[in-house]
Design a binder for these strands. Structure first.
Length: 561
RNA sequence: CGGAACGUAGCGCAGUCCGGUAGCGCACUUGAAUGGGGUUCAAGGGGUCGCGGGUUCAAAUCCCGCCGUUCCGACCA
């Protein structure tokens, strides 16, 4: 492709709205432009790379027997009401104003709709149906460029099986296909066990990429590969002690001491000797959650332990329930349910709030002073703690969810009455699985992992072009002639070539554009080298340059350096 | 939805406090020079100052309302 005739609007400065590197570079390199919050237009070069990602996905999905569909984005609202998901999605679901349609945020309902009456026998299964298509979600806060948009491209796949054993097979096929897809896209990723959340179903795994722009937090063990969403992650941490002798309970004046850090500094004690209290409202009743030192309550764990509706108490409620404000609350004389983290089990000689502002209590023995206390794993794993699997050190970081695979089960087939007859002639609901990949997230994550101060650094096979051919001074007849010849030869040799044939652009400008766009190899044709029948070849990633004779160019390009 | 900031040319910004002819850099157009890392000189084009209302002789600037964008949080399959 000739740059002089292409729409590749590169920018020296990026709009201030772009904050993360992938977003800034996508815009600076002329790959995409924002239309509105969370809505992006893909420009030719960006779309070219995006298509390469989609091609890889197609190949891997076809390889496991997937059949490509194209379902409508515009869906009758009625079908969504039948599965209760108009309510479940709430404001996230886009609704059409002048007809009872919704814009599909995913396609379980539509797959089930088409399966109904068409997949009628166990002999019709298994089926793997997939599509690569635009999805719509009315995100309250789009952010990080294409990482969280209101409109985005998703590969979604669905398995239809006669039983759980069949679902297991389909799930494993997708697990393998996903690994191949992300491997081929040259991403550094990892797989975490996750909770299936509002999708329903039994088992789910997320494919994640480490990134500060991520919206999930993950605990990861480099050594053994243990990876888990912090919502459910566990670790080995030092428990509070039980000393041989319990001191009596005593009150301490602690003016203006609120946080655990302040308490430790004031009393010259260690965090391990303190217990932090948080008040939650559980189905209308107060619950005191006691944590060791500065440990954070993991609200997902709390929710699954006690069930029902749980929310943190409001500041006004704290005073009413405990008689004190946050920072002075403790388990002694607390009138309601108390649950504590396992690390505090049976500890003594602890310091905690006195339920009286500006006072704390020392000498707390949980066995003696809070006999009804219940213990659970309630803490949020922190970086540096030990892996529960291998004892090595855990790292906690932000991550972007690239893909998610679910064993759905029969939730949708039952809601929509999608039944088949099994070997014995018995009617059963079809067993479904659902498998998603954020196509644009692959794109953004790749850039997050492959850039430098000059710009993007593409790797095959995602690079929009294999070679960026630069004619330095195209007004020079020898240079332009040589370039034209090389351009034709490279194309004939099967390369995709972006040819900077602009006549009116200085050398430095072309170099910077080439580095910004980031094709893996640059072939640079300038007067000096050309006088000796030579051109320069530059590796974008390493910056390494080689000057070769014209007739050795194709040979050199065959072995990457 | 809670907190904060911003909105002036395609992009980055100044001007707003203290009302009085709308500016700068990059990009763009024309011409010339240059031609291996955003080169130089000259001459140009481009703006309902987010929208609506109000105050005023006069509003980018002051007041009110709305919209949009971004960040932090909440939310999130």
């Amino acid at each position: 492709m000739r740059l002089s005739k292409s729409f590749i609007p590169t920018l020296k400065e990026a709009p201030t709205e772009a904050v993360i590197p992938s977003h800034i570079l996508m815009i600076r390199a002329g790959l995409a432009r924002q239309l509105s919050a969370g809505i992006y237009s893909w420009l030719p070069i960006g779309y070219k790379a995006l298509r390469k990602i989609m091609d890889i996905i197609r190949e891997e999905m076809n390889a496991i027997g997937g059949q490509e569909f194209h379902f409508p984005s515009l869906n009758p609202k009625e079908i969504w009401e039948q599965t209760g998901r108009v309510e479940a999605f709430g404001d996230i679901l886009f609704q059409i104003k002048n007809r009872d349609y919704v814009l599909a945020p995913t396609h379980e309902e539509i797959v089930a709709y088409h399966a109904k009456g068409a997949i009628v026998s166990y002999k019709d299964m298994p089926q793997i149906w997939y599509q690569i298509q635009t999805k719509f979600r009315n995100e309250p806060r789009p952010r990080s460029g294409v990482i969280r948009g209101r409109q985005f491209i998703m590969k979604d796949a669905y398995t239809l099986d006669k039983d759980d054993a069949g679902l297991d097979v389909g799930y494993d096929l997708h697990d393998k296909a996903y690994r191949s897809i992300f491997d081929r896209c040259r991403l550094k990723y990892f797989v975490v066990g996750a909770s299936s959340g509002a999708m329903g179903g039994s088992k789910s795994e997320e494919f994640m990429v480490k990134s500060d722009a991520g919206e999930d937090t993950v605990a990861y063990c480099e050594k053994c590969g243990y990876a888990s969403n912090v919502e459910v992650a566990q670790s080995v941490a030092l428990p509070a002690k039980r000393h041989a002798e319990s001191k009596p309970v005593y009150e301490i004046s602690t003016p203006n001491v609120k946080s655990i850090n302040e308490l430790c500094a004031f009393l010259k004690i260690h965090e391990q000797e303190t217990a932090k209290s948080r008040i939650y409202i559980h189905d209308g009743q107060p619950v005191l959650v006691l944590m060791l030192g500065n440990d954070e309550v993991n609200e997902t764990k709390l929710g699954s332990v006690i069930g029902g509706n749980v929310r943190p108490a409001h500041p006004e409620e704290l005073k009413e329930i405990t008689g004190a404000d946050a920072g002075s609350i403790g388990p002694i004389d607390f009138k309601h349910r108390i649950i504590a983290d396992n690390l505090l089990k049976d500890a003594n000689n602890l310091y905690s709030g006195a339920n009286k502002n500006d006072f704390h209590i020392g000498g707390i023995d949980l066995l003696r002073d809070a006999p009804k206390i219940e213990y659970f794993d309630l803490r949020t794993v922190k970086s540096g703690e030990k892996c529960i699997r291998c004892g090595s050190t855990l790292e906690v970081f932000k991550a972007i969810e690239l893909g998610h695979i679910f064993k759905l089960g029969t939730k949708y087939s039952e809601a929509l009455g999608v039944m088949f007859l099994d070997e014995t002639g018995k009617e059963k609901p079809i067993v479904m699985g659902s498998y998603g990949i954020g196509v644009e997230r692959i794109f953004a994550c790749f850039i997050e992992q492959n850039y430098d101060e000059k710009g993007i650094v593409w790797k095959e096979p995602l690079a929009p072009f294999n070679i960026h051919l630069i004619g330095l001074n195209m007004k020079n007849g020898a240079v332009s002639e040589a370039c034209e010849k090389i351009y034709i030869e490279l194309i004939a040799d099967g390369y995709e070539v972006l040819f900077d044939d602009r006549k009116d652009v200085s050398a430095g400008f072309k170099f910077n554009d080439a580095d910004l766009l980031g094709m893996p190899i640059q072939v640079i044709v300038g007067e000096k080298n050309l006088k000796e029948e030579k051109v320069e070849v530059k590796n974008r990633r390493t910056g390494e340059k080689k000057v070769v004779e014209l007739n050795k160019l194709l040979e050199l390009l065959k072995k990457p350096f």
